Amino acid sequence: MTIVQSDLKTNAQNKNVLNVLYIEDDHDDLYLIECALNDDQLKHYSLFHAVNFFQAQHALREYHFDVVLLDLSVGRLSGLKTLQQAINILDLNKKSIPIIILTGSEDESMGEKAIQYGAADYLPKKHASTFNLSRSIRFTIERHCLMEKILNQAKIDELTGLLNRRETLQRCQQVIEHSRRFETPIAMAMIDLDGFKPINDEFGHAVGDDVLKAIGHRLSENTRTTDIIGRLGGDEFLIVLTHFESNESLLGVLSKLKSAIETPLEIQLELESKVFDMRCSMGIALFENTLTLKKTLARADQAMYVSKKEKNSEIVFYTEDMEQSTIYRSNP
């Protein structure tokens, strides 16, 4: 059953309906695919037809899609250049959607190249019966969802739910490249929990894990969607901020975050609950265009070390001479 385009937004959360973007400039072929989908007794479809990539890009901005059907000849583009253009507009709109190639050609070597190039499946239109098309769409979406789940698991710290060290550093590098191009400010805040080792030693690693989970939740709840939040290891975390106007506004954001971390934390023990007084040390380094990621992180780590040594709940901004670091009180 094909559903009208106006229902695409409504159907975004409806698992019984698959939203399909079909990029095709031949209306006869469009009719054949519509008929094949209409006859499917297993699934319902909401089909959006784009006659060119301009229309496709507009649709991607407006709607959620589960799969893209792509003809290999659209406008002046043909073959793998068409596939590349489709991949480009998906990347541009930050969409991870599988692409199924539908083509009048039965060239198996082209099909193999398309798969190697990034397509999820390849189906000659001659064989695009209801059964074959439905099967290709359903299996493609299932494989894609599974791969997305595996990839996401590889990026996440299992204990806290934050980004793991590897993914955090990769995103930091991306932010740095963006900053070099557009001259946007970056601040890296290294955070280390004070007194965490005694908690582990006295109450055991299970309680320590519960503390880390709770801190991870507090970090997620008290940062912005534009911030990068990751666990580097142990009780050490990194926050990367890119949207701030001054050191003072940055300090305001981080002071609120520090206060959230340091709110007394109640953890359920085996027979009773225990309230822990949380403290953390925080060091900040501002990225400079001549610095590498490694050097910027080292500066943040130096500032954090000064904060820990001071033992007076201070947020420390890195300066070239850490003996004379500019220290800002987190609770003025």
Rank of each mutant, 00 (worst) to 15 (best):
D201L: 07
S273E: 15
I101K: 02
T319M: 05
S249R: 09
E221A: 15
E142V: 14
A119S: 10
V316L: 02
N38V: 03
R171G: 00
N11I: 01
F196S: 10
M147P: 03
Q324K: 15
H127R: 12
T226I: 13
A303R: 03
D209W: 08
D277W: 06
D192G: 11
A36Q: 06
F182M: 07
V306H: 01
F182N: 11
L18T: 07
I186R: 05
P185H: 08
E34T: 03
L251H: 15
E314K: 14
E108F: 10
D201W: 08
F287M: 07
F65A: 04
L123G: 03
T296H: 01
R138N: 11
L232T: 03
I156P: 08
T319P: 01
L251V: 09
L238K: 04
Q116F: 11
A36W: 06
I176D: 02
D29G: 02
V4R: 12
D235R: 02
V74M: 10
N222C: 08
I191P: 08
L133I: 02
V253E: 13
L18H: 06
E148S: 12
P264A: 15
G118E: 08
E112R: 15
L169S: 03
Y63K: 09
Y45S: 04
L251M: 13
K309R: 14
Q57T: 14
S330K: 00
N164L: 11
A154H: 07
K308C: 11
S109V: 12
K311T: 07
M322D: 02
Y31K: 14
K295Q: 09
A260L: 08
H64G: 02
N19F: 03
K197N: 11
F48D: 09
R165F: 09
K309F: 09
I101H: 00
K256T: 05
I33F: 04
D157G: 09
V51M: 10
L297K: 02
D301A: 08
K294R: 06
K258N: 04
D40W: 05
M147F: 13
L37D: 03
E314T: 10
Q302R: 11
T82A: 14
K295A: 07
E236A: 12
N312R: 13
E236Q: 13
G111N: 07
E183F: 12
L8Y: 04
I315D: 02
Q302I: 10
L151G: 00
D7M: 12
G195F: 12
A12R: 12
A120N: 08
N200H: 09
A128G: 01
D235E: 15
R299G: 05
P124D: 03
S129Q: 04
T290Q: 15
H217W: 00
I137Q: 04
I115E: 11
A119F: 10
S78R: 14
H27S: 13
E62Y: 05
I100D: 02
D39E: 15
T130H: 02
L219V: 10
D121C: 04
T10N: 13
T103V: 00
A214F: 05
E314G: 04
K155Y: 04
E112W: 06
I23R: 04
Y45V: 02
L297R: 01
H243Q: 13
K113E: 14
K9I: 14
K256Y: 07
K113W: 05
H44W: 01
L30W: 12
D235W: 10
F203W: 15
T160W: 02
K9T: 14
G252N: 14
E62G: 00
L238E: 06
L291V: 01
T326C: 11
R165L: 07
M190W: 05
N222A: 06
Y63E: 00
